[in-house]
């Protein structure tokens, strides 16, 4: 048996990628009061946007990543305008169902344009290095690093900037925020843009780490959902912690249950959290 530390590290990398969509999913849920399942599809969209840039115009992967961030954010905004904004006052359940519909449409647009086949970026795979008995991939380290920086930026934005405070205020009570003069629709647009961007960027990471196919993002939704619930809806650090825990449990869980039950681990976490501590780790009210 390899040291458990290797599994934990593997889980940290998985969790790092998971954290970006989990934070986006969690914040948007709090802000707009419904779980937006289309967020997982933004990963797929981001991965394909970067693919087009990387293969089509031969952009470096760094540039393609930035492009994916911007384009996916813009797409998320467009989707919000077309699909969710007209439904702003509907019940969360209706909006959640609408988001599943949006995810379905986006996924099929991707299939229609790029086909069902998987793709890969024009980036060589590198051998991992050995650090203190741990096998650590360079790409994974880089992905983890960028994910952590993005999380820190998101958190700094939310805590330190006026707009960030306004976003949290809008999430708390949109009517009161409006009474105080906060332009809530613009705050929502900004959050959608940022959330879509984070998810799109994570999609590129996922494509680099594994491969790109139309179902890549949709397949993650259970893990993203579990991370957001575990962290407490609306808490960015909570979602980060939730993502890391889900990632680690999925990997370390292999020591206890067969690998074919990986997805079941996410479900189990969701169930356990809902039963034991519905407010999640951060304990924010929803």
């Amino acid at each position: 048996m390899p040291p458990i530390a290797q599994y934990v590290f593997n889980g940290v990398v998985t969790g790092g990628i998971l954290a970006l969509p989990a934070v986006a999913f969690s914040l948007l849920w709090r802000l707009l009061r419904f779980p937006n399942f289309a967020v997982s599809t933004y990963l797929t969209v981001g991965a394909y946007v970067a693919l087009v840039l990387n293969h089509g115009v031969r952009a470096s992967i760094e540039l393609a990543w930035l492009g994916a961030l911007v384009v996916t954010g813009a797409l998320a905004l467009l989707v919000d305008r077309i699909a969710f904004r007209p439904m702003r006052d509907r019940r969360p359940f209706s909006l959640a169902i609408a988001s599943i519909g949006v995810a379905f449409v986006l996924e099929n647009v991707v299939r229609f344009v790029w086909g069902n086949d998987f793709r890969s970026y024009d980036v060589p795979v590198t051998r991992g290095m050995s650090v203190a008995g741990l096998r650590i991939g360079r790409d994974q380290l880089l992905i983890l690093g960028v994910a952590v920086v993005l999380m820190a930026l998101a958190q700094a934005f939310l805590l330190r900037t006026r707009l960030g405070i306004a976003m949290r205020a809008t999430a708390d009570n949109p009517r009161l925020a409006a009474v105080k003069g906060v332009p809530t629709e613009r705050v929502i647009a900004l959050a959608t843009l940022g959330g879509g961007g984070l998810a799109g960027g994570a999609g590129v990471f996922l494509g680099l780490d594994a491969s790109i196919d139309p179902l890549m993002g949709g397949g993650l939704i259970i893990s993203v959902f579990a991370a957001a619930i575990l962290g407490g809806i609306g808490s960015a650090p909570g979602a980060l912690a939730g993502a890391l825990i889900v990632g680690i449990m999925e990997e370390v869980g292999m020591l206890v249950v067969p690998p074919t039950y990986k997805t079941a681990i996410g479900f189990t976490i969701i169930l356990a959290v809902l039963l034991v501590r519905p407010t999640g780790l951060a304990g924010a009210r929803s």
Binding site: L176, A177, G234, R285
Partner: peptide, 24 residues
């Protein structure tokens, strides 16, 4: 306008609430 209920932002600090109060 100060509403009767839900008239502060519970997850924001007191200071942050005042910041939002001064939004305009």
């Amino acid at each position: 306008y100060v509403p009767q209920e839900a008239n502060v932002f519970p997850s924001l600090s007191v200071w942050e609430n005042l910041t939002i109060g001064a939004w305009t």
